[in-house]
C-alpha cells in the first residue's frame, strides 16, 4: 500500500481571513466583559456565539463591531483595497463608512436599528443614499426588491416601521443592512422577543440569505436552535472566556467542556 501523504492543512485553497480577533479583552471596572478572545473568521462563514446573559457575548459583539474599544487585543478586518487592518486604528470616518457599507448590524431591538419615523422604503434606501445614490426611482426599486427578499409586502413600502409587527421590523432591519451587500453582518439575538412561529420564519429567511449571498456573520444568541440552523461554527462563552469552540454540530452533539454539556443538556431537544 502506498504511503499516506499527510497534509494537515488542505493545500488546495489558501483562504484569506475576513476578520481576525486576537486576545480581545474588555472589562467594566471590576466586572469582566470578555477576556482574551481570539478567533479567525473566513468569508462566508457564520460563527455563533452562545452563552447565558452576562457571559460576555454581547460585549464581544460590541467590540468586534467597532462599537466599543477593547482594553487589550486587536480586531483586524480585511478592508477592500487595504487588506487586514486594525479597525480601532482606522480614522473615525473610515470606520463609520465601513460600518454602513461593508458591515451590517442587526440589533436585538429593531428600535435600535431602524428609523421608526421613516418609511420602510426610506429605511432600506438610507444606506444607498449614504453612499451617494441620488436617483429616487432606482433607490425605490432597490428598496422594493429588498422588501420582497425579506418577504415583506410591497404595499407596505411607504408605511412606517412602528406600524409593523416585531417579526416584520426585524426583517426590515435585515433588508436595511443587506442592501449595500455587506460582507459581514453582526446579529445580536436576532430572534429575541419574537414568537416561536415568527422566529422560525426569520431564521429560515436569514439562513437562505446568508447562504445565497455568501455573507459572513457573527451571531450572538442564547438560543441553541438558532445557531444549529445558522452557524457553521460555535464559540461557547462563560464568564467572559471562550470555553469551547468548534464546528456547530460537533460542539452541540459532542460537547467536552462541563459548561457546554450543561448548556446542551438544559435545552429540550435542539
Amino acid at each position: 500500500m502506498s504511503a499516506l501523504v499527510l497534509s494537515e492543512s488542505l493545500g488546495t485553497t489558501v483562504r484569506q481571513p475576513l476578520m481576525r480577533a486576537t486576545g480581545v479583552s474588555k472589562s467594566y471596572g471590576d466586572t469582566i466583559g470578555c477576556l482574551d478572545v481570539s478567533f479567525t473568521l473566513h468569508p462566508g462563514e457564520v460563527i455563533g456565539v452562545v452563552g447565558e446573559s452576562g457571559s460576555g457575548k454581547s460585549t464581544l459583539l460590541n467590540v468586534l463591531s467597532a462599537q466599543l474599544p477593547p482594553d487589550a487585543g486587536t480586531v483586524e478586518y480585511d478592508l477592500r483595497h487595504r487588506g487586514m487592518s486594525d479597525i480601532f486604528r482606522l480614522s473615525e470616518p473610515d470606520r463609520r463608512r465601513l460600518m454602513r457599507t461593508d458591515w451590517g448590524i442587526v440589533h436585538q431591538n429593531p428600535r435600535d436599528g431602524l428609523r421608526m419615523d421613516v418609511s420602510a422604503g426610506g429605511n432600506v434606501g438610507e444606506r444607498l443614499m449614504a453612499i451617494g445614490a441620488r436617483h429616487y426611482g432606482e433607490i425605490r426599486a432597490e428598496g422594493l426588491d429588498w422588501l420582497a427578499k425579506v418577504e415583506l409586502d410591497a404595499s407596505r413600502v411607504d408605511d412606517k416601521p412602528k406600524t409593523f409587527s416585531g417579526g416584520m421590523q426585524q426583517r426590515l432591519q435585515i433588508a436595511r443592512n443587506l442592501v449595500t451587500r455587506p460582507r459581514l453582518i453582526f446579529m445580536d439575538e436576532p430572534t429575541g422577543g419574537l414568537d416561536v412561529s415568527v422566529q422560525a420564519r426569520l431564521l429560515d429567511l436569514l439562513r437562505g440569505l446568508v447562504r445565497e449571498l455568501g455573507i459572513a456573520a457573527i451571531v450572538v444568541t442564547h438560543d441553541l436552535a438558532v445557531v444549529r440552523l445558522l452557524a457553521d461554527r460555535l464559540m461557547v462563552m462563560r464568564h467572559g472566556r471562550v470555553v469551547e469552540e468548534g464546528l456547530t454540530d460537533q460542539v452541540l452533539d459532542d460537547p467536552h467542556h462541563p459548561y457546554t454539556q450543561l448548556l446542551v443538556s438544559s435545552v429540550l431537544q435542539v
Binding site: G121, G122, G125, E126, M129
Partner: peptide, 13 residues
C-alpha cells in the same frame, strides 16, 4: 445620506 432620506420620504408620500 440622511438628508436625502428626508427628501425621499417626501416623494414617497
Amino acid at each position: 445620506g440622511l438628508m436625502h432620506v428626508r427628501l425621499y420620504e417626501d416623494i414617497s408620500r
